[in-house]
Every structure is written in C-alpha cells, then in structure tokens.
Design a protein around this nucleic acid. Structure first.
Ligand SMILES: NC(=O)c1ccc[n+]([C@@H]2O[C@H](COP(=O)([O-])OP(=O)(O)OC[C@H]3O[C@@H](n4cnc5c(N)ncnc54)[C@H](O)[C@@H]3O)[C@@H](O)[C@H]2O)c1
Ligand SMILES: NC(=O)c1ccc[n+]([C@@H]2O[C@H](COP(=O)([O-])OP(=O)(O)OC[C@H]3O[C@@H](n4cnc5c(N)ncnc54)[C@H](O)[C@@H]3O)[C@@H](O)[C@H]2O)c1
Lengths: 212, 212
DNA sequence: TCAATTTTGTGACTCCTTTCACAAATTTTG
DNA sequence: CAAAATTTGTGAAAGGAGTCACAAAATTGA
C-alpha cells in the first residue's frame, strides 16, 4: 500500500460496493469473494481487488473478504463512518423533497438546518413532512447558525441565479463541502469542494444514447 | 471525421458547452473561440476542439465558431433538438418536485404522464403545482398510456424495492430510456438504456474529499 | 498584394484506468 | 501431511482520454 493518487472512479465504486455489502450483511452473508462482489456491482473482479488495494489488504487468500469487516473498512475510507451534518439552502420543490429523503437518515447524512430567503412562505412545506421537522432560518443567519450547529456540508437548492452568492455565503461560513443542484457553474476557493447534480446533463446523455 | 467510439465524458462536456452557448446566445454574442468556451466551462481549449472533431468541422480557422450555428450542431448531436416525451413513475416527494421542475420545460424534456400505485393519494401533490397539471394514472395502465402518448423516457421515483419491477413494465411498454432515481441497481435488456442519479454516491464522494 | 496575426483541426505524446495473468497465501480433501 | 483447489494481491500489458504543439486555413492591416 504505497501512496498513489486515487482515481475518482475508484471512490464512486467503493460507494457502490458499500451499498452491496450492506445488503449482504442484512441477508446474513459472512464472506464474499471479489468475483461475487464484482458480479453484483457489474464490474470486473480484478477491478474490485485493485480498488481495495489502493487502501490496504482486506482479504484472505483462498477465502475472500469478511463482509462486516470489509464494509467497516470501506466506510472508514470514504469517511461515511461518521455523521455528516448538512444544511439545506432553498426550501422550494426540490429542497423540501430533500428534507423528506429517508435514505439520508438511513445513511449517515443529516440535514440539521434549512435556510430560505422567505421562511414564512416555506414553513408549510417543512411541517407537512414526516419525522422531526427541520428548523428553517432566514438566509441572513446562515453564518451564525452553521457555526453553532457545526455544519460541514451545504446543499444548494435555490434558483441557479442565486447559486453562486449562496456558495459565497457558505465559503464565508467555512462550510467546506457543497452539493449543488442548481444548474449553474459555481466556483469556490482552494480547500473547498463542490459536487454538482445536474439532471439535465444526465438526461442529455440519455437522449444521445437513444438517438444513436 | 472518421468513425470512432465516442467517450461518454465528451457527451457530458457537449451538454455543458450547450448550456454555455445558450447563455452566450442570450447575451447576443455571435462568435466564440475554443479558448473562450473552454475558459467558461473550465476545460482545456484543445479538449473543446477534440470533442467537436469527433462529429465534424464546425469552426472557421482564424475566426472561431458561430455561436448559433455551433449550438444547433451540438443539439443535433445530442438529440436535444427534438422534444422528448417522458413519464414519471412514483409521485411521492421527489416525483412531485420533478413535475414542477421548470428546467425540464425550458429544455426540451416534457413529462406528459405520471403513474403511481395510489393515484387518489397523490393527486393533491400534482394540482398544487404550477402550470398545466399532469394527469396521474394507476400504474397498471402504464403500457396502454405510454403507447398512446408516445413516451420515450421513464423517470423512476418509486421506493428502491419497486424500481426493478417498474423498469420491467417500462421495458414491456418499449420505453427505451430510463432515468432512475431509486438507489437500486436495475438491469434491462440490450437496446434499452438506464442512467442512474444516485445522490448518496455523490455525497459519499464529497465526504471522502472532505476527510482527506 | 503580401506579411503578420489569429485560431482551427489533428498527429504524436503523456498520463491515467482497466484488464490480464500468475505467484503467493490459505483452505480443503484424500 | 501433501496435493489439489481457491482466491487474493499485483506487475505488466492494453486500452482510453487528455494535452501539446504545429501545420493549415482564414482574416487583418499596411
Ligand atoms: N424541482 C426539481 O425537481 C429540480 C430538479 C433538479 C434541479 N433543480 C434545481 O434546484 C433548484 C431549486 O428548484 P426548485 O424547483 O425547488 O425551485 P423553487 O423555486 O421551488 O425553490 C427555490 C427556493 O429557493 C429560495 N431562495 C431563492 N433565493 C434564495 C436565496 N438567495 N437564499 C436562500 N433561499 C433562496 C426560494 O424562496 C424558494 O423557496 C433550481 O436551481 C432548480 O433548477 C430542481
Ligand atoms: N426524496 C428525495 O429527495 C430523494 C432523493 C434522491 C432519491 N430519492 C429516491 O427516489 C425514490 C422516491 O423517493 P420519495 O422520497 O419521493 O419517496 P415517496 O415514498 O415519497 O414516494 C414514492 C411514491 O412511489 C409510489 N409507488 C410505490 N410503489 C409503486 C409502484 N410499484 N408503482 C408506482 N408507484 C409506486 C408511492 O405511492 C409513492 O407515491 C426513492 O427510491 C428514493 O430513495 C428520493
């Protein structure tokens, strides 16, 4: 396990292995081979082993991998063994569906505060959802509240025209991670990370494949 | 312009170029160089030219590319110059936010029918949204209605446990393209295309980058 | 008209990712 | 206990994707 730059694709696959391993654990399976895991995730078995080899030796030759053990190791690698505290900015259509997203809870991602430019307008959208309702603050309290609640990730679900200025506020509040749903290119300083979720890019991709 | 296998990354970038060119066109810009476009999309200028070269020669040496012309060509390549008719399956939290997604309308993707296992329950979610409300059918009418309305893409927004069986229905109804939001690996026969939108994989990726 | 300037299109090169193939480690079987 | 079977970990090969660098084409300006 010498140090190397790790491909982003490897990280994405680890996340998929993690999901598969969770299912296996639920089914009570104790041991899995790279071939079985590869089969389930539709990748090459050598790829599975190589992905893991970037981070250490987790298997036993002639046996395979202990499901529980491998899952714990992958979670440690991904940083998904800890609770991540998130803020939602923009409690509109998409935003309020994110508040109700059960998978976030099952996984270890929690929305601990929400922000909007017009909290009274959106308050109904929040209380109508299941579980403990998330408090909605005015956007101008973002710095104060994110500090207080130790928020590490911001979800941007405002109109695209507001995305960059919201990102600037998050940067100012030292929220280092941003997941951006608004179809706008946003930039942040060194040390901050933005990942985009652009539905229409994926749709365009689908449309391309369907037309060819 | 010899035939070659085209990288998926190229298609994704074309989609981004398309968005930038639309903005430029709105601003009234007539001509753009590969360097300017690259700068706006945060890629290498040679990359832009190479991406385009897979499909033909669209520029003029010493000048650049005509914005309008290049945009039309890219749309033709991506298949986004035509109207794509979509069905939504699962009108829950996420599903109803998709119904209200304005960008789908601005772009040429239209949801022309929705399906749920319990239409009466979800009807309020639809009528509360802006624009002309989308009709919600019981899932058991999917084959009939998709044929009648010439639907080409299905959006799966049901619980993950139902995703594969819904996909099977879409395959049966010969809906060739699927955009899957449920965190479940689904498989379809040759000739059909599935693209996944897995929020938690992207979040895991973000978490990894933040922990390292 | 022709030299200087601009910018494309593309072959060659570099870098990164995936797959192959096999030695090494471990278990199973006779 | 030794031979056969299994499965990992990894170096080497193959395959893609991105960048560089420059000839070719078009424009501009004197
Ligand atoms: N609706 C979808 O399914 C969907 C899908 C993909 C992407 N998106 C994108 O997600 C974003 C939100 O979409 P939506 O449909 O929920 O829109 P929306 O208009 O319903 O919600 C936007 C919310 O942001 C709030 N807001 C506006 N400016 C703000 C600011 N400066 N600070 C804080 N809050 C602010 C508004 O009050 C509103 O509640 C858009 O960029 C959209 O393109 C939406
Ligand atoms: N809520 C989010 O923001 C979000 C984000 C990412 C992914 N997802 C995923 O999207 C899916 C939907 O999430 P949600 O929060 O909207 O859940 P939800 O429970 O609110 O909605 C699910 C809907 O699907 C319907 N349904 C169930 N079985 C069906 C079937 N066989 N045929 C047709 N309809 C059926 C239900 O009646 C319900 O209306 C889930 O798989 C979820 O993991 C949700």
């Amino acid at each position: 396990m010498k140090y190397q730059k790790i491909p982003e694709a490897t990280i994405r696959r680890l996340s998929r292995y993690s999901r598969c391993l969770e299912e296996m654990e639920e089914k009570g399976e104790k041991v899995v081979s790279s071939a079985q895991l590869a089969n389930k995730c539709i990748v090459n078995a050598a790829q599975v082993r190589k992905d893991l080899a970037y981070f250490g030796e987790f298997g036993i030759r002639g046996v395979g991998y202990y499901v529980r053990d491998l899952l714990n190791n992958i979670k440690k690698i991904l940083g998904s063994n800890k609770e991540w505290r998130m803020a939602l900015i923009g409690v509109g259509n998409l935003g309020s569906s994110l508040l109700a997203y059960k998978d976030f809870l099952k996984q270890n991602y929690t929305i601990v505060a929400a922000f909007d430019i017009d909290p009274p307008k959106v308050i109904g959208r929040v209380s109508e959802k299941l579980g403990k309702p998330v408090e909605v603050f005015h956007i101008n309290r973002i710095k104060e509240v994110t500090k207080e609640r130790k928020i590490e990730i911001g979800l941007i679900a405002t109109p695209p025209s507001e995305a960059q200025s919201v990102a600037n506020l998050l940067v100012e509040a030292e929220v280092r991670g941003i997941l951006n749903f608004a179809p706008a290119q946003i930039t942040v300083p060194e040390g901050f990370v933005v990942k985009d979720v652009f539905f229409t890019i994926i749709l365009d991709n689908l449309a391309y494949l369907l037309s060819n």
